[in-house]
Every structure is written in structure tokens, then in C-alpha cells.
Design a protein around this nucleic acid. Sequence first.
DNA 1: TTTAAAATACCTGAAAAAAGGGATAAACGA
DNA 2: TCGTTTATCCCTTTTTTCAGGTATTTTAAA
Lengths: 208, 208
Amino acid sequence: MTTKFFIVDDHFMVVEGIRSLLQDEKSVQWVGSARNAAFCMAELLTRNPDIILMDINLPDKSGIELCREVKQKYPSVKVIGLSTFNQQSFVKKMLESGASGYILKNAAKKELLKAMDTVMRGQVYMNEEVSRLLRQSTGPEVVLTKREKEILSLIAEGLTNAEIADRLYLGTTTVDTHRKHLLLKIGARNSAEMVKKAFLKNLLQLDS
Amino acid sequence: MTTKFFIVDDHFMVVEGIRSLLQDEKSVQWVGSARNAAFCMAELLTRNPDIILMDINLPDKSGIELCREVKQKYPSVKVIGLSTFNQQSFVKKMLESGASGYILKNAAKKELLKAMDTVMRGQVYMNEEVSRLLRQSTGPEVVLTKREKEILSLIAEGLTNAEIADRLYLGTTTVDTHRKHLLLKIGARNSAEMVKKAFLKNLLQLDS
DNA sequence: TTTAAAATACCTGAAAAAAGGGATAAACGA
DNA sequence: TCGTTTATCCCTTTTTTCAGGTATTTTAAA
């Protein structure tokens, strides 16, 4: 029984690398690849893979969102997340979106095969390093309201409470209240620390 | 005249991908690979490549440092930087360390060949996207003194001037002066903005 | 309809940062 | 040795944040 796998990654080298690594394996068979989410969805109409190896940073859409879409439209297709780094929040979101596994791009052939085998047996496969990171989870995930996110972003741009209030048509004391809630939720003593921790917890991103 | 190339990257998939992509090319020949800097230096004793394709994030040492070492010991070997992202400061440092080129991991076979050919002709090869980024360079690179870096790091941890002064056996006004210099150098109006910009300019890192 | 969460808004006072200057001493490289 | 950079330190004032509360209205889901 051959497992059919499909690769979604904009890195030619990675696609070719996986294909080449596994081409002599009897238990798995490459059925195609896509460099972005849109093409992937189009190809799934005809390729019928058992497993998708899915990069989490695609040019047109995040792997998290694509994973959600794939699981919705093709519930029996298994998704394994693929990344160069093991940031906790991404891993969690990927799993929440329906992924059955997560491996890093430094994985060797042996691990690729093991991940696919585990996932085909209906279990979840986690890379050892990623698994360790998840286990040392530091407290509950921070959930910000829409307004809080907005104000956090503006604080990080250097705006004062008064400026933010003007921007959002609020009173300055309202902004100050949100700011206090942010400090509490993020666990920071002041704005500098809050911005740093927001990056660490992926509440702020570097790509602006 | 065949160009011999060597790959340094801890990502099995990438190494295999490049090797496989280029294995039918007459003009280039794969002579080996290493997963870390130490092994690379050991292998260079016998492999004699013309070009090294070098990942900038190695497990034991940065590609920037390895590049410097390679160019020192083997000045005729060309180095092409290899990365998943095109952060300006890394590109610059890589070039300053003696690299002759820089490509991204989404490069196709054609670009790999072109990069190697360009570099063998004694010219510098820059990926288009990276080249564009360097051209829209936003002012001079920020250079912080040792003390400034120290204080920036502590500000980002949420310490007040008084706390930092205690930590470093300084007066609070000294800390305040450094803080002012930091704001000026980084181009921020307050500490929150400064922390964000410090991450953007790679003056602060997420791995602490 | 009811409940809980989010949004909005406020008060006072203290702490901290920021602004806008000033200065001297120490360290480093040519 | 000399010139430049870095480090250290200060002053006063103003602005802004932070702490520790208070409250009502709106919104969304059960």
C-alpha cells in the first residue's frame, strides 16, 4: 500500500530535495507539488494525495489558513506542517487547523518516512525538538481583543495615548485603560517590555 | 571546465534538493556537503571546491563567521550565501565577510546555475529580490556601542533607569544619557517604538 | 431575555520617561 | 602625543506613563 504525498513549498530546493530523498522508497510516492496555496487547491482536484507536506510560509497565504481549507474540503487528506523554525504559536495554530504532524526542514529521510507512516496510522507526529518546545509551554496563550490588538500596534509605532485617541476617535482615558489591560495580559511592567514580549508571543510581527 | 561546488546547510532537504537539481548539469559538479561549520572546514582540506553554497544559519556558527574563516584560509574559494529570508543586515554582513553572492532558497535551477557562473567569472551575483532590498536601503546602518547594546537589552526587559543603574553600577543620569543616544541612533520617539525598531534592525533578537 | 465580555470613560497622584541642554574623564587608534 | 569616540555624570522642566481604583453602555452569544 503506497502512500501518495504532495508538497506545498515555494522553495524549489526543498521540493526537489524531498522528492529526491524519497524517490527510491517503495512505501511512498510523490504525486505533485505546488509553490503557493492557490495552485495547491487547484491541483488537489486531480492528484488525490494521502498526505500534504505543507510549508507554513507561503507567498500568497499562510500554511495555517491553507491547512484549514484543505481539511474542510478534503477531510481525509493528512497535513504535515513543514518549517525552518519551531515557533510555538505557529505549531499550535497548525495543529488547531487540522494538521496531523509537524517537522522541521532539517529532518532526514528517516524522519520524513516515520512522520508519514505515523500520520497514516491515524496518529499525530511531532518532531522531537518541536515536541520538547510544546511541553515547556509557558502558561496560557494570550488572547487579545480586536481593539487591544489595534492599540498594541499603535503603541509599538510610538504613538502616545493622546495620538492614539485622536486616531481612533476615543478618549485618552479609554486608550489608557486598554493599555493597562494589555500590560496585564501580556505580563509586562511597561511599554518597552510589552513590545518585546508581544513579538515573542507573536502578537506583533516584524513584517509591517 | 566543470565548476565544483560544496554545500553547507543543516537542512537535509535543501542539500539533497540542490544536489538533485544540478546532477544532470555538465557545467557543475557536486563535491560534498556539510551540516555544520566545523565539518565544513574539515572537509575543505580534501574537497577543493570552487564554490561553497553556504547557509547563513548553521547550528554551531553563523554563516557570516564561517564565510570569513573560509575566505581567510582558502581565498580563491567563492562563497554564495543561501537563506530563506532576505534581511538586509545579514546580506550586508555576508558580503562584507567575503561572499561573492547571495541567493534565496526559493531559487530555481536556472538561478543557481547563473549565480555560480557569474561568481566564477569574478563578478558578484545578487538575487533580484535581495538586490532590490539593498537598493531601497533606508539610511546608514545603526552601530551601537557595547554599553548602548547592554542598556537597550535591559530597557527591553522592562527595567527602569534606576534599576539599570543599580544593575550596572552607574548613575541613573548616565543611563538616561545612553537611553537618549539610543533613541536618536535608532530613530524612535519613545521606548516602545525603539524596541520595535531594534527588532526590525536586528539590534535585538527573539532568541534570548 | 439574560449574562458575560468588550468597549468606553473617568478620577487622582506618583513614577518614569523624555526634552534640552550642560560638562569632564577615559579609552582607543593613528 | 593628539584627536576622536565613548563613557560617565549632571541640571531643570515638561510630558507621559503607570498604578489603583471607579463606572456605564454596548455587543454578542446562550
